[in-house]
Amino acid sequence: MTQKERMLAGELYRADDPELSADAARAAAWMARYNGAAGAGAEDRHAMLAEGLGQAGAGAVVRSPFHCDYGCNIHLGERVFLNFGCVILDVVRVEIGAGTQIGPGVQILTADHPRDPALRAEGWEFGRPIRIGANVWIGGGALILPGVTIGDDAIIGAGSVVTRDVARGATVMGNPARPARG
């Protein structure tokens, strides 16, 4: 398996691999163009999203600045909205369902690292996919950690650190995010 195949499979891989470095450089060039086109019309910006991401559903909006690792592993449903300053580390698939609204400064992080310090020191890492359902609202500054699934219609409070799956329709908040009381 190539390092890219290992990465996409969620296995240990080396991000300094030449193929992955070239993919990251392409994504960086795309982000520079996309972020520099903040004043462009909605149709032009959506076309750029479709070019740089794995999927950009109709009406999806991503405000600049936006940052990601590769872009091609990000799949946005229809009418998804990401506000200013979002970061998506997409070493594996990130799926965001239709109508989801994501506040400013949210970080969605699939990248993870071995717990063994020797493996970390050698530069190994891995990823765990994230799935965010439809009609989810994620408040500003929230962090969504590797491997999390958020169910449809859920609400994530601003500044929350989501370390575990969130049930459909649940409201969670805090660090770590826990169900809101009454």
Rank of each mutant, 00 (worst) to 15 (best):
V92D: 08
P114I: 08
D112E: 05
Q101M: 11
Q107D: 00
V106L: 06
A98S: 13
T110M: 09
R93V: 14
V106C: 04
I108V: 06
V106G: 01
A98R: 14
V87I: 15
G105E: 10
V94Q: 13
G97S: 10
A98I: 12
C86Q: 06
I102C: 09
A98F: 05
G105Y: 10
H113C: 10
I96Y: 08
D116S: 04
L89P: 08
D112I: 06
A98W: 04
A111C: 04
A98V: 14
G85Y: 08
H113L: 05
G85K: 10
V106R: 01
I102S: 05
F84H: 15
R93I: 10
T100A: 14
A111W: 02
V87L: 14
G97D: 09
G85C: 13
I96M: 12
D90K: 07
F84V: 15
G103P: 01
I88Q: 07
V91W: 01
T100S: 15
I88K: 04
P104F: 03
E95P: 04
L89G: 05
V94A: 14
P117V: 13
D112T: 12
V94P: 14
V106T: 01
P104A: 07
P104T: 01
F84L: 15
L109N: 02
A111D: 07
I96W: 09
L109T: 02
V87F: 13
V106N: 01
I102D: 04
T110E: 03
T110Y: 03
G97T: 13
R93S: 14
G99P: 12
V92W: 04
R93T: 15
V92N: 05
D112G: 06
I102T: 07
L89F: 05
R115P: 01
A111I: 04
C86D: 09
T100Q: 11
R93Y: 03
G85R: 13
E95Y: 05
L109I: 13
P114H: 03
G99M: 05
C86F: 08
D112C: 07
V106K: 00
E95H: 12
P117R: 13
Q101N: 02
